[in-house]
Amino acid sequence: MTSIAVIDYGMGNLRSVSKALEHVAPDAEVLVTSDPEIVRQAERVVFPGQGAMPDCMRELDGRGLRPAVLEAARTKPFLGICIGLQMLFERSEEGDTAGLGVFPGTVKRFPPQAMKDAQGGKLKVPHMGWNEVMQTGPHALWRGIADANRYYFVHSYYVEAGAPELVAGYSVYAFPFTCAVAQDNIFAVQFHPEKSQTAGLALLANFVTWNP
Protein backbone atom coordinates (compact mmCIF):
# COMPACT_ATOMS: atom_id res chain seq x y z
CA MET A 1 0.00 0.00 0.00
CA THR A 2 1.45 3.26 -1.11
CA SER A 3 0.95 6.50 0.80
CA ILE A 4 0.36 9.72 -1.09
CA ALA A 5 0.56 13.13 0.57
CA VAL A 6 -1.45 15.90 -1.07
CA ILE A 7 0.11 19.09 0.18
CA ASP A 8 -2.46 21.47 1.64
CA TYR A 9 -1.27 25.01 2.18
CA GLY A 10 -4.73 26.44 2.59
CA MET A 11 -5.33 27.64 -0.94
CA GLY A 12 -8.66 26.09 -1.71
CA ASN A 13 -10.24 22.87 -2.68
CA LEU A 14 -8.09 19.75 -2.66
CA ARG A 15 -11.03 17.39 -2.48
CA SER A 16 -11.03 16.82 -6.24
CA VAL A 17 -7.36 15.88 -6.24
CA SER A 18 -7.67 13.48 -3.33
CA LYS A 19 -10.89 11.90 -4.63
CA ALA A 20 -9.34 11.35 -8.05
CA LEU A 21 -6.29 9.71 -6.46
CA GLU A 22 -8.52 7.49 -4.33
CA HIS A 23 -10.46 6.61 -7.46
CA VAL A 24 -7.38 5.38 -9.36
CA ALA A 25 -5.65 3.86 -6.32
CA PRO A 26 -8.34 2.49 -4.00
CA ASP A 27 -5.73 0.76 -1.85
CA ALA A 28 -3.51 3.79 -1.41
CA GLU A 29 -3.53 5.96 1.66
CA VAL A 30 -4.25 9.47 0.41
CA LEU A 31 -3.48 12.15 3.00
CA VAL A 32 -4.40 15.79 2.47
CA THR A 33 -1.94 17.41 4.82
CA SER A 34 -0.18 20.58 5.88
CA ASP A 35 2.09 18.67 8.26
CA PRO A 36 5.70 18.64 6.98
CA GLU A 37 6.35 15.41 8.86
CA ILE A 38 3.57 13.56 7.02
CA VAL A 39 4.93 14.91 3.73
CA ARG A 40 8.36 13.54 4.69
CA GLN A 41 6.96 10.12 5.49
CA ALA A 42 4.76 9.75 2.41
CA GLU A 43 6.04 7.61 -0.44
CA ARG A 44 4.61 9.97 -3.06
CA VAL A 45 3.78 13.65 -3.04
CA VAL A 46 1.23 15.65 -4.99
CA PHE A 47 1.77 19.41 -4.99
CA PRO A 48 -1.42 21.12 -6.23
CA GLY A 49 -2.43 24.74 -6.09
CA GLN A 50 -4.85 27.38 -7.20
CA GLY A 51 -5.29 31.07 -6.74
CA ALA A 52 -2.52 33.62 -6.90
CA MET A 53 1.11 32.59 -6.67
CA PRO A 54 2.15 35.29 -4.13
CA ASP A 55 -0.52 33.97 -1.75
CA CYS A 56 0.49 30.37 -2.44
CA MET A 57 4.15 31.03 -1.62
CA ARG A 58 3.24 32.97 1.51
CA GLU A 59 0.89 30.26 2.77
CA LEU A 60 3.41 27.54 1.97
CA ASP A 61 6.08 29.27 4.03
CA GLY A 62 3.59 30.23 6.72
CA ARG A 63 3.03 26.53 7.33
CA GLY A 64 6.71 25.73 7.24
CA LEU A 65 6.23 23.41 4.28
CA ARG A 66 9.04 24.64 2.02
CA PRO A 67 11.79 22.30 3.29
CA ALA A 68 9.51 19.25 3.10
CA VAL A 69 8.42 20.15 -0.44
CA LEU A 70 12.00 20.68 -1.59
CA GLU A 71 13.07 17.40 0.00
CA ALA A 72 10.21 15.53 -1.69
CA ALA A 73 11.10 17.12 -5.02
CA ARG A 74 14.60 15.67 -4.65
CA THR A 75 13.75 12.23 -3.37
CA LYS A 76 10.37 10.73 -4.29
CA PRO A 77 7.71 10.55 -6.99
CA PHE A 78 6.44 14.11 -7.13
CA LEU A 79 3.52 15.47 -9.12
CA GLY A 80 2.96 19.23 -9.45
CA ILE A 81 -0.40 20.52 -10.65
CA CYS A 82 -1.23 24.04 -11.91
CA ILE A 83 0.31 26.54 -9.47
CA GLY A 84 2.15 23.50 -8.10
CA LEU A 85 3.99 23.45 -11.44
CA GLN A 86 4.56 27.21 -11.52
CA MET A 87 5.96 27.32 -7.98
CA LEU A 88 8.77 24.95 -8.97
CA PHE A 89 10.32 27.68 -11.14
CA GLU A 90 12.53 30.58 -10.16
CA ARG A 91 10.23 33.51 -10.51
CA SER A 92 6.68 34.52 -11.49
CA GLU A 93 5.47 37.74 -13.07
CA GLU A 94 2.39 37.34 -10.86
CA GLY A 95 3.14 39.80 -8.10
CA ASP A 96 6.84 39.50 -9.05
CA THR A 97 7.12 36.48 -6.76
CA ALA A 98 10.11 34.25 -6.14
CA GLY A 99 9.31 30.57 -6.59
CA LEU A 100 11.03 27.51 -5.16
CA GLY A 101 13.70 27.49 -7.86
CA VAL A 102 13.72 23.74 -8.38
CA PHE A 103 13.79 24.41 -12.13
CA PRO A 104 15.32 27.28 -14.09
CA GLY A 105 12.78 29.51 -15.79
CA THR A 106 10.02 31.99 -15.20
CA VAL A 107 6.24 32.15 -15.05
CA LYS A 108 4.69 34.69 -17.40
CA ARG A 109 1.24 36.10 -18.02
CA PHE A 110 -0.41 35.49 -21.38
CA PRO A 111 0.31 38.86 -23.03
CA PRO A 112 -2.95 40.62 -24.03
CA GLN A 113 -1.59 41.89 -27.34
CA ALA A 114 -0.65 38.37 -28.47
CA MET A 115 -3.95 36.68 -27.67
CA LYS A 116 -5.23 36.04 -31.20
CA ASP A 117 -6.11 32.80 -32.94
CA ALA A 118 -5.02 31.89 -36.48
CA GLN A 119 -8.00 33.81 -37.90
CA GLY A 120 -7.22 36.91 -35.85
CA GLY A 121 -10.07 36.28 -33.38
CA LYS A 122 -9.67 37.27 -29.72
CA LEU A 123 -8.47 34.57 -27.33
CA LYS A 124 -9.71 34.91 -23.79
CA VAL A 125 -7.66 34.89 -20.59
CA PRO A 126 -7.89 32.83 -18.38
CA HIS A 127 -7.09 30.02 -20.81
CA MET A 128 -10.07 27.98 -19.68
CA GLY A 129 -11.23 24.66 -21.05
CA TRP A 130 -10.00 21.56 -22.84
CA ASN A 131 -6.86 21.88 -24.93
CA GLU A 132 -4.64 19.36 -26.66
CA VAL A 133 -1.48 18.27 -24.89
CA MET A 134 1.36 17.38 -27.22
CA GLN A 135 3.88 14.97 -25.74
CA THR A 136 7.51 15.75 -26.57
CA GLY A 137 8.56 12.14 -26.03
CA PRO A 138 7.76 8.98 -24.12
CA HIS A 139 7.43 9.16 -20.34
CA ALA A 140 6.03 6.77 -17.74
CA LEU A 141 3.25 9.24 -16.96
CA TRP A 142 2.14 9.41 -20.61
CA ARG A 143 1.87 5.63 -20.80
CA GLY A 144 -1.36 4.57 -22.52
CA ILE A 145 -2.33 8.20 -23.22
CA ALA A 146 -2.62 9.25 -26.84
CA ASP A 147 -0.61 12.21 -28.03
CA ALA A 148 -2.73 15.36 -28.43
CA ASN A 149 -5.29 14.14 -25.90
CA ARG A 150 -7.30 16.97 -24.37
CA TYR A 151 -6.92 18.09 -20.76
CA TYR A 152 -8.74 20.72 -18.72
CA PHE A 153 -6.87 23.98 -18.17
CA VAL A 154 -7.67 27.10 -16.21
CA HIS A 155 -4.84 29.60 -15.86
CA SER A 156 -3.65 33.06 -16.86
CA TYR A 157 0.09 32.42 -16.40
CA TYR A 158 2.32 29.84 -18.06
CA VAL A 159 5.86 28.58 -17.47
CA GLU A 160 8.79 29.36 -19.71
CA ALA A 161 11.29 26.65 -18.87
CA GLY A 162 14.91 27.78 -18.81
CA ALA A 163 16.11 24.36 -19.99
CA PRO A 164 14.43 22.82 -23.06
CA GLU A 165 15.09 19.27 -21.88
CA LEU A 166 12.62 19.83 -19.01
CA VAL A 167 9.68 20.08 -21.40
CA ALA A 168 7.53 16.93 -21.47
CA GLY A 169 4.48 18.45 -23.12
CA TYR A 170 3.15 21.61 -24.69
CA SER A 171 -0.15 23.13 -25.77
CA VAL A 172 -0.98 25.90 -28.19
CA TYR A 173 -2.90 29.01 -27.12
CA ALA A 174 -1.96 31.91 -29.36
CA PHE A 175 1.50 30.31 -29.26
CA PRO A 176 2.98 27.04 -28.02
CA PHE A 177 3.59 27.01 -24.27
CA THR A 178 5.00 24.43 -21.90
CA CYS A 179 2.25 22.54 -20.07
CA ALA A 180 4.23 19.60 -18.68
CA VAL A 181 7.77 19.30 -17.35
CA ALA A 182 9.67 16.24 -16.21
CA GLN A 183 13.02 15.56 -14.62
CA ASP A 184 14.06 12.46 -12.68
CA ASN A 185 11.39 11.92 -10.00
CA ILE A 186 9.39 15.06 -10.82
CA PHE A 187 6.49 15.42 -13.21
CA ALA A 188 4.48 18.61 -13.21
CA VAL A 189 1.59 19.82 -15.32
CA GLN A 190 -0.25 23.08 -15.92
CA PHE A 191 -3.58 21.34 -16.61
CA HIS A 192 -5.81 19.60 -14.07
CA PRO A 193 -5.65 15.81 -14.39
CA GLU A 194 -8.17 15.54 -11.55
CA LYS A 195 -10.68 17.40 -13.75
CA SER A 196 -9.76 15.84 -17.07
CA GLN A 197 -11.98 12.78 -17.02
CA THR A 198 -10.53 9.58 -18.50
CA ALA A 199 -7.26 11.06 -19.74
CA GLY A 200 -6.66 12.74 -16.40
CA LEU A 201 -7.38 9.64 -14.37
CA ALA A 202 -5.02 7.68 -16.64
CA LEU A 203 -2.20 10.11 -15.88
CA LEU A 204 -2.89 9.91 -12.13
CA ALA A 205 -2.99 6.10 -12.34
CA ASN A 206 0.42 6.20 -14.01
CA PHE A 207 1.72 8.45 -11.24
CA VAL A 208 0.62 6.21 -8.36
CA THR A 209 2.54 3.27 -9.83
CA TRP A 210 5.52 5.27 -11.13
CA ASN A 211 8.95 4.17 -9.93
CA PRO A 212 11.41 6.72 -11.28
Binding site: R15, S16, K19, A20, H23, Y152, V154, H192, E194, K195, S196, Q197, G200, L201
Partner: peptide, 11 residues
Protein backbone atom coordinates in the same frame (compact mmCIF):
# COMPACT_ATOMS: atom_id res chain seq x y z
CA UNK B 1 -21.51 18.71 -4.75
CA UNK B 2 -19.50 16.44 -2.47
CA UNK B 3 -21.13 13.32 -3.88
CA UNK B 4 -20.75 14.40 -7.51
CA UNK B 5 -17.15 15.57 -7.06
CA UNK B 6 -16.22 12.17 -5.66
CA UNK B 7 -17.38 10.39 -8.79
CA UNK B 8 -17.35 12.76 -11.74
CA UNK B 9 -13.97 14.15 -12.72
CA UNK B 10 -14.86 17.15 -14.83
CA UNK B 11 -15.23 20.78 -13.68
Amino acid sequence: VEAVAAQVFIP
